[in-house]
Design a protein around this nucleic acid. Structure first.
Lengths: 151, 151
DNA sequence: GGTTAATAGTTAAACAGTTGAACAGTTAAA
DNA sequence: TTTAACTGTTCAACTGTTTAACTATTAACC
């Protein structure tokens, strides 16, 4: 049916992903900005998921330099949301984890974001959204692969 | 087959979109950072697309305050990439357009980004990518709708 | 074992991007 | 004509980012 050129597909993808990202980031911000920035929330989410991690691990996942992580972690630490624990076996390492307050605040903001995103996801057939996520996963794998091969 | 709960779908979406965005932004940056930041490129792209626009229009599209646009436009203007022209009929308005250099630089960076994104898009069946974009478009519409209704 | 490498994290300076509030200039409305 | 609304800018303050230099610690090697 449609024989769109690669360039058209690329244009289309760039346009729609840009638009969705801008609007979605804006809405999340609206939802949680009284408590946290979006990046701070993403940081809490990652630590909540893995339980404990290091700065280097965060730098890898967020694709930024370690000093950027130090800055963001220090801000969360100043708010009393994060614990920094030196490893006794390898004293170079600092293990990061959520404090009680951090855990609580994450849950509170995450709940609002879940409700927000859920209200959009609900508008799709389950089949459609599952297929969409399948392709999105594949794209994610391709990018992750390429990234690891470049480094 | 799969009867995933809304929460699982939302978790899945948040995770994969976060990962894809981080990696993609990083790769684009790698490709063009010697000339422009990602946001500067997006700004040139928008102006290139519409030919001429105002700060307020950019603020609307980028979903930020006007003072943020002033800052980014001033940087591009200092580099000689953008023209600021006062409207003679309504002297409040400033029309933004690309200079020759701006146009040239946009083309150069855009070419590299097209090649980059194209190399990923190519790995999919055309049917799969078209279906993906269809769902992505639908999501974009829903978000745009909701945003305009909130304001 | 002692010197050299590599690793984990921090600090500091510099910059891009963002907001909010105050402002100037201009146009529209009353 | 006065008042209200709008467009864009400036400024101070903040978050997030990089690069480079640094500290402290561990690993490797001769």
């Amino acid at each position: 049916m449609c024989d769109k050129s690669i360039k058209d597909l690329v244009d289309h993808y760039i346009h729609v992903s840009f638009s969705v990202n801008k609007i979605a980031e804006g809405m999340i911000k609206e939802e949680i900005s009284s408590d946290l920035t979006n990046d701070q929330h993403y940081t809490l989410r990652y630590i909540n998921k893995v339980g404990t991690c290091t700065s280097s691990e965060l730098a890898e996942v967020f694709d930024v330099k370690k000093s950027a992580i130090t800055a963001i972690i220090t801000r969360l630490w100043e708010k009393g949301l994060i614990l920094r624990t030196r490893d006794e076996n390898d004293r170079r390492l600092v293990h990061l984890s959520l404090t009680e307050e951090g855990d609580e605040l994450f849950r509170k903001t995450e709940e609002r974001i879940q409700a927000l995103v859920g209200s959009f996801i609900e508008k799709f057939d389950q089949d459609e959204i599952v297929q969409f996520l399948k392709t999105y996963d594949k794209l994610n794998e391709i990018l992750t692969d390429r990234k690891s091969r470049v480094e």
